[in-house]
């Protein structure tokens, strides 16, 4: 049994991480590691950067091809795809957000990691509604870009 099957928390060791160059451009990191019958991300990608051996296989991201458009972030039924960008000493994470209240651009929000722990504060830089889901981009300290996976917004 893998640890995440017990805890519900992935460690970055389970993920194939993007390189510094990929991160500088901004790419989608897919945190979907199990064989589940699902493939909307493959269909949503405009540049065919996401592939799957069959509908049950976990999606594979070609970081070279990914253009960081975020279509897959909004479509993923598991809310398991995050856009991560680290460039010039700054970091951004774009995540699906299905809670209330919806933050506005410029709002300060609490940054939360995969275990639900508060790890810092960040500024919301973009909020869009895409495919029926709110997608929020938040600026994070670059060191936290691979850790922040949720935000908490004060009402």
């Amino acid at each position: 049994m893998r640890e995440y099957e017990k805890t519900g928390v992935l460690s970055v060791d389970h993920l194939r991480l993007p390189s510094e160059e990929h991160l500088a451009r901004g790419v989608a990191v897919i945190e979907c590691v199990q064989d589940i019958p699902c493939n909307p991300c493959v269909d949503a990608c405009p540049v065919q950067a996401i592939s799957m051996e069959n509908i049950n296989a976990p999606p594979q991201m070609d970081y070279e091809a990914c253009i960081g458009c975020g279509q897959c972030v909004a479509v993923c039924p598991g809310l398991a795809i995050f856009l991560v960008k680290v460039d010039d000493g700054r970091g951004w994470v774009t995540l699906p957000y299905e809670m209330l209240p919806v933050p506005g651009q410029g709002d300060q929000v609490t940054l939360v990691n995969r275990e639900g722990e508060e790890v810092g504060r960040g500024t919301v830089t973009k909020v869009v509604k895409r495919r029926d889901t709110c997608v929020v981009t938040v600026e994070v300290p670059p060191a936290l870009a691979m850790q922040v996976r949720a935000i908490r917004v004060k009402p």
């Binding site: 992935l10 398991a80 995969r114």
Partner: peptide, 19 residues
């Protein structure tokens, strides 16, 4: 059960929201 029965992605959503 000793392991989470549902999809990890569903469990992950809960954990990052502090449950």
């Amino acid at each position: 059960m000793p392991r989470i029965g549902g999809y990890h992605v569903h469990a992950a959503k809960l954990r990052r929201h502090g449950v």
